[in-house]
Amino acid sequence: MTTTTKTTTRLDVPKTYKLFIGGGFPRSESGRVTEVRDGEGRFVANVAKASRKDAREAVRAARKAQPGWAGATAYNRGQVLYRVAEVLEGRKAQFVDELQRTEGLSAARARAQVEEAIDLWVWHAGWTDKIAQVAGSANPVAGPYFNISVPEPTGVVAIVAPQSQGLLGLTSVVAPALVMGNAVVVVPAASSPLVAISLAEVLATSDLPGGVVNVLTGDPAELAPWLASHADVNALDLTGAGDLDWVALEVAAADTLKRVIRPEPGIAPETPQRILALTETKTVWHTKSRM
């Protein structure tokens, strides 16, 4: 932006990086921001720094959106997740640029991360209408009963995303939660807030209902305790909380018996177990004793 030739000079219009809550992009109610600078110390952005109240707002939005998302057909959810991959592919350059600026990656490494993230969305898109058949069962009980077990979403999932590989790490925890119909409140890597909010823009334009994913850029150490103790959160994914006092978070989560995924290695990404860890098994009995 230091070009001196008058005819080619154009002043950039930088983006304001805000939170993503309930399908909208509000600033933090706290009015706080975190300054982001690139590897050479140049100012990049003032990213919104979410507060406890923002986290509560995000949980409320997630709870409201969750039944609708879970109620969509598996095929529909699959198409929406695939759409995320399509839209992401079209905006690859932007993500490469943001990763280069925040993670100091070479263009090739940044591109590789973005492409891996896109493929991971595709992988998850394919699971929506399959995991129930792989993990569900028809149970041969000793009596005249029709008896089947099916996985269902657990509800609202709060996530501390991996602290490295901002886009890929975020995808590896958010996508599996979405497969079966959970809603998500996620704290992305503190070091990669730009791609997190840009991914939110992708989600917002991929027919994902507002509130299904909520992104709180900010300090994981500050936000995680509120999410861990929030009574309306069903599961806590601590994959990226390895550097925090995660045992205290797990203890807090136990108050409302949240399902907890422990910090890395926790449950490996890109496995059905990762998807199933955020589901409940429902078994339905139906008599067939009276013809």
Partner: peptide, 8 residues
């Protein structure tokens, strides 16, 4: 009648 349907 669900019971009948499944039995049949």
């Amino acid at each position: 009648k669900g019971s009948r349907v499944l039995a049949i």
